[in-house]
Write a protein that binds this DNA or RNA. Structure first.
Length: 330
DNA sequence: TGGTTATGTCAACCGGATAT
DNA sequence: ATATCCGGTTGACATAACCA
């Protein structure tokens, strides 16, 4: 394993370009799984450690910026308050007052009085939709990628980090119950590794949803990735390749109900076919979306908006007359 | 042989699943 | 009950591999 440092760094360069293009700052973990899924390094603790050290060194040598990795585990708490008034407050304030005085105007005044009252008549993407999709993802490492891919589609993404905690599931279920008050059904789009654990996590989630008394007719768990069909279609490299780790996989306690003799990381899809993967996720969301409902609501909103605007103009005119009368009586 | 470099191991924080 | 695995990251220390 001692010689492939350059191969690793070259592949890290690729990864940085890829994630950078998606507006994602990778974590060490993200890069690690990227390299694992490309079979550059093995999925071991020591390989992880080695990558960490290689990247520290590379940064000391100036190859990468110090903040090119995201560290999500360490936090800064508290707020340092050291603000003080500006020495020019009075001058600035008077400047603004002067401007206000000069630009004073009856229409302006009316606008300031009334315009803010105009109701926001808008329709959000999932309003009145019978089916609400959510993304549940196994790996934190890919969550920001998925978020950037889907943020315009306004769906919840719940990051489970392996087997979820009962606390987290409970909170999510409570949220789902609220959602079901306004919608008929929730479809959970699940993203996870194709490995014994990744498949078993799904079973675990199903059982937990059941336990918390969700109507299973109304909450569907749908595996979106990784599927054996995707491995086939995109020719994703299955791991492991050597017999030793393969044997280890078969000894995996969870592999009894696991029918494949290979595993594929979710990260493989990102590493090999990012565009296709993005489309898979987005169309899974769009499949739940009824465009007709949205368009009808949108039309109605436009109509109401127009009427509201007419009312506003109307009342501003009345207000103008009232103000003028008041001034005359003074 | 001594000094440098690479790699391995364990620790810490936390909550969980599963096998023995 | 205990051990080992998952998820994320890095520091401290021990051991191995290398070169002059």
């Amino acid at each position: 394993m001692r010689g492939n440092r350059e191969a690793i760094l070259t592949e890290v360069d690729n990864a940085i370009r890829l994630f950078g293009a998606q507006g994602v700052k990778p974590t060490l973990r993200t890069l690690f799984y990227y390299l694992v899924s490309k079979n550059i390094i093995p999925n071991t603790r020591s390989a992880y450690k080695r990558l960490s050290r290689i990247l520290v060194k590379a940064r000391k040598e100036g190859r990468y910026a110090w903040d090119f990795l995201e560290d999500k585990t360490r936090v800064v708490l508290g707020y340092r308050s050291d603000h003080r008034f500006s020495d020019d407050v009075l001058e600035d304030f008077e400047e603004r007052l002067k401007y206000k005085l000069e630009s004073i105007d009856i229409s302006e005044i009316l606008s300031e009085l009334f315009d803010w009252m105009m109701p926001t008549i808008d329709v959000e993407m999932w309003a009145e939709q019978p089916i609400i999709p959510e993304i549940w993802i196994e790996k934190e490492a890919l969550s920001s990628t998925i978020y950037n891919w889907t943020r315009d589609l306004k769906v919840r993404i719940r990051v489970n980090r392996g087997y979820s905690s009962w606390t987290f599931i409970y909170n999510n279920v409570e949220d789902l119950k609220t959602t079901l008050l306004r919608h008929d059904k929730v479809v959970i789009l699940y993203l996870g590794d194709l490995d014994p654990s990744g498949v078993d996590i799904q079973r675990f989630l199903e059982e937990a949803l059941e336990y918390f008394g969700l109507d299973r007719e109304k909450v569907e768990l749908r595996r979106v990735a990784v599927t054996p069909e995707q491995v086939e279609e995109f020719d994703l490299p299955p791991r492991p390749e050597d017999a030793e780790t393969l044997a280890k996989l078969q000894r995996d306690t969870r592999s009894k109900s696991y029918t494949y003799d290979y595993i594929v990381e979710l990260d493989s899809l990102v590493a090999y076919v990012p565009e296709e993967f993005r489309n898979i996720v987005r169309s899974a969301i769009y499949d739940c979306w009824d465009k007709d409902i949205y368009n009808k609501l949108k039309d109605r909103a436009k109509e109401l908006s127009n009427k509201a605007f007419k009312l506003l103009v109307d009342y501003k005119e009345k207000a103008r007359e009232k103000i003028l009368n008041m001034l005359r009586e003074e």
